[in-house]
C-alpha cells in the first residue's frame, strides 16, 4: 500500500464529513429519522399517505445542492471513468443490494455507526470489504 499524498485531502474530508454528520443530526433531531438515502428513495416505491412529502423533500435537497453550488461557484472536480455498461451493472447491484441490506453508506455507514448499531457495523464492514475486493479484482487482476 502506498498513500497518494497528492490526492489526500484531509481538511476538506473532515469538514465535508462534519457537514454530512450535521445533516444527519438535523434530520434525527427534527424529523426523528435516519438519513439513509437508499431507504428514503426506496420508500417512494411503496407510496403511503403522509409518507411521501418528506421523502421527496430530502431527495430534492440532495439534487438541489449541486444546482445551487454551480449557480454560485464552480463545482469541485467530478470524474466518472466507468463505462456505461459498468455503470448500469453497478447501479442495479447498488439498487438491489442496499434494499436487501436495509441501508447504504449513509444509513448504515454514517447514521448506524454513529448509533453504535451492531447491525449497521456488520453491514458497513461487509460493503467496505466487498468494495475493496471488487476494486482489487477490477484494477489489479482483470486490468492491471
Amino acid at each position: 500500500m502506498s498513500i497518494a499524498w497528492n490526492a489526500f485531502t484531509p481538511a476538506s474530508a473532515l469538514i465535508g464529513g462534519a457537514i454530512i454528520g450535521a445533516a444527519a443530526a438535523l434530520f434525527a433531531v427534527l424529523n426523528g429519522r435516519i438519513a439513509g438515502v437508499s431507504g428514503i428513495l426506496g420508500g417512494l416505491a411503496r407510496p403511503q399517505a403522509g409518507d411521501l412529502s418528506w421523502r421527496i423533500a430530502f431527495v430534492a435537497g440532495l439534487v438541489a445542492a449541486p444546482l445551487v453550488w454551480a449557480f454560485l461557484a464552480a463545482l469541485p472536480e467530478i470524474r466518472v471513468d466507468s463505462s456505461y455498461p459498468a455503470l448500469v451493472a453497478a447501479g442495479l447491484l447498488v439498487g438491489i443490494g442496499t434494499r436487501y441490506g436495509g441501508g447504504c453508506t449513509s444509513g448504515h455507514g454514517v447514521c448506524g455507526v454513529s448509533r453504535a448499531s451492531p447491525r449497521s457495523i456488520a453491514a458497513t464492514v461487509a460493503f467496505m470489504a466487498a468494495g475493496f475486493a471488487t476494486v482489487f479484482v477490477a484494477r489489479h487482476l482483470i486490468a492491471p
Binding site: 447498488v94 443490494g97 442496499t98 458497513t124 466487498a130
Partner: peptide
C-alpha cells in the same frame, strides 16, 4: 445485501 451493494459500489 451489503456484499452485493459493496460490489456495485466498487464497480
Amino acid at each position: 445485501g451489503s456484499l452485493v451493494f459493496g460490489v456495485g459500489w466498487g464497480l
